[in-house]
């Protein structure tokens, strides 16, 4: 951990593995890092596949580095539900930073854990925050709710579209549109960018205002770095607006509550199944339910109570460490 705080990339890489593997040791590590977390600015970047999210992050990273800020990126791609494998190709588009020690990129697969992804990605951001990154960016493909949740865990969320995203925008879940603080129509060098901008603006007009902040709709050509300054400016404006209205504090408070709740659940879940008595009781309960001797929910409640008793007998509830 000292090595992580001293800026050793190897240590940061290892700690993120602890987290993505959901190993029990992570509680102690994250706990020890807690005092160092909270300084980084967090950006979420989401949008349909191939819109240019990674290319845009590469261009933003270049601008941020030129301004002297260090950058961490967590790039999430889906795990195949059939094989459990994943092809994590985002960093190919971010290769420009190559040997720059001021840029740390980590690819993560969703690994099928519903909701677990959001937690693991957020904790990976905590690690990069503690590691001293000024800006931490999370990239997710905006297809499912959990991916949108990940992006939402940021201080500011960019939804990146391209001129080809028309159908996707039509079909787009409200969640993705609601998550956006800034819209970017990338690939503005291609035909149809104007139409896409108009389409998003129309949608924004139809929607009820949710506060003082009106999400701007910007254009970029990420491949050439065009439009990036304006995007970073919009992010800074959003931040100021949030600070003025207390929105940032409210967001962070909401996130804190959600994370605490999730951590309580996670610690208990792991503690329950780490107790060998639980696995045994599970088999017995399954037999009773199968033979009609008990109903599933009653049996589940009974399992929980019996675990509570065993935990109490062990000298208090488990601490998850």
């Amino acid at each position: 951990m000292q090595r992580l705080l001293a800026g050793e990339a190897r240590a940061a890489g290892r700690v993120i593995s602890l987290i993505e593997d959901r190993r029990p040791e992570r509680f102690a590590v994250l706990g020890a890092l807690a005092g160092r977390v909270g300084r980084a600015e967090r950006l979420g970047v989401t949008g349909p596949p191939g819109a240019g999210k990674s290319t845009l992050i590469n261009a933003m990273t270049r601008a941020l580095r030129a301004a002297g800020r260090t950058v961490g990126v967590v790039a999430v791609d889906p795990t195949s539900p059939y094989t459990g494998g994943a092809l994590l190709g985002d960093r190919v588009r971010m290769g420009e930073s190559g040997l720059d020690a001021g840029v740390f990129i980590r690819s993560m697969a969703t690994r099928g854990a519903l909701g677990g992804l959001a937690r693991a990605a957020e904790e990976a951001c905590d690690v990069l925050d503690a590691y001293g990154r000024d800006v931490v960016v999370i990239e997710t493909v905006g297809v499912g709710q959990s991916e949108v949740d990940v992006a939402r865990a940021a201080d500011c969320t960019l939804v990146v579209l391209s001129p080809e995203s028309g159908d996707q925008v039509q079909a787009m879940k409200a969640g993705l549109m609601e998550a956006a603080d800034v819209f970017v129509v990338n690939k503005a060098d291609r035909e149809g960018a104007d139409r896409m901008v108009a389409q998003v603006e129309e949608m924004l007009h139809l929607r009820a205002r949710r506060g003082a902040w009106e999400p701007p709709v910007l254009r970029s050509v990420a491949l050439k770095g065009e439009g990036v300054e304006a995007i970073l400016e919009a992010v800074a404006r959003h931040r100021r607006s949030e600070e003025e209205r207390g929105g940032l504090a409210a967001r962070r408070r909401g996130r804190l509550l959600a994370r605490l709740r999730a951590a309580v659940e996670e610690i208990h879940r792991e503690a329950i199944w780490a107790d060998p008595g639980s696995a045994l009781a599970l088999e017995g309960a399954a037999d009773r339910v199968a033979s009609g001797g008990a109903d599933l929910y009653g049996a589940a409640a009974g399992l929980f109570r019996s675990w509570l008793r065993r935990a109490a007998g062990l000298g208090g509830p488990p601490r998850g460490e």
Partner: peptide, 29 residues
Amino acid sequence: ALRDAGMEVIYGGLWLSPEEIVTIAEQED
């Protein structure tokens, strides 16, 4: 092929130097 075999593959692309390769290996563990 490695992805289909259930592995998580970080695709690094072309033209990488040994220094870049090791830097990626470090970050991606």
